[in-house]
């Protein structure tokens, strides 16, 4: 479970998150919608300690983590897998080595045979086969995104954080990735936070949707609740998909 309590994040004199509070329950898919620059990615990066909040509390599975050191975050990052906006694959490593990277670091006791089996399983979860020996530059952008997803689930996280997973993809690949997010979240029973500006996808696969505007939560509820929202920004998002 992930919980934010009045989280504020400032960069110099700019306040990006203005006292954000919300809760993501065990096993649910929570979409965080908002226009560009509203602090969605900053919010996700605060969960895994890539950024530290200026004030407020972040609770993960009953632990307050906002003041954790880099070493203490190691444990949290094992539980929270993050899929970045860019595929963020390591150019010099093969697809196999990319997917195995997290296993080797988070679970050093794993044998080579177990790693091989785990990598194959994770790649098949994202419907990729026979590309283990290719370098990231040799596969398409959509495939890179899926490898990135496989790399994240390879360490067996209980929470999945997606930072705009479909940005820059064509509609067909976008649908495939969205379906993958849904299937993986259900199959692995993970709590999933998806940062996006794709209302269509959010209405399709989210259990709950939270809308962020200028660093504040302006709406939160089920897809049905959102459809009846009176918030102008939510209406604008809904207008786009009509």
């Amino acid at each position: 479970m992930i919980e934010f309590k009045s989280v504020v994040k400032r960069f110099g004199d700019r306040t990006i998150l203005k006292g954000v509070s919300f809760e993501a329950k065990q096993g649910e898919i929570l979409f965080i919608l908002g226009t560009s620059g509203t602090g969605k990615s900053v919010l996700l990066k605060n969960i895994v300690g890539l950024l530290k909040p200026t004030s407020g509390e972040i609770w993960i599975d009953g632990e307050e983590v906002s003041q954790f050191t880099e070493n203490e975050y190691f444990r949290i990052r094992k539980k929270c897998g993050m899929v970045f906006q860019h595929p963020a694959l390591f150019d010099s490593l093969t697809v196999f080595e990319n997917v195995a990277y997290g296993i080797r670091k988070h679970r050093p006791e794993t044998t080579e045979e177990e790693i091989e089996a785990r990598v194959k399983k994770c790649l098949s979860l994202v419907h990729l086969h026979g590309i283990e020996n290719k370098k990231p530059a040799e596969i398409s952008y959509g495939m890179q995104k899926r490898v990135s997803l496989a790399r994240t689930v390879a360490v067996d996280p209980t929470m999945l954080l997606f930072d705009e997973p479909t940005t820059g993809l064509d509609p067909v690949t976008t649908n495939a990735i969205n379906q993958l997010i849904f299937d993986l979240s259900r199959e692995l029973k993970t709590t999933s936070l998806v940062v996006s500006h794709d209302m269509h996808c959010a209405l399709d696969i989210a259990d709950r949707i939270m809308v962020l505007d200028k660093g504040e939560v302006i709406e939160e509820g089920t897809p049905e609740d959102l459809k009846n929202s009176e918030q102008p920004l939510v209406k604008d998002f809904l207008m786009e998909i009509v």
Partner: peptide, 14 residues
Amino acid sequence: VTEQIDAIRCLGAN
């Protein structure tokens, strides 16, 4: 800028 360094941190490396 392509978040590879963030990914390294998230995957348990320094």
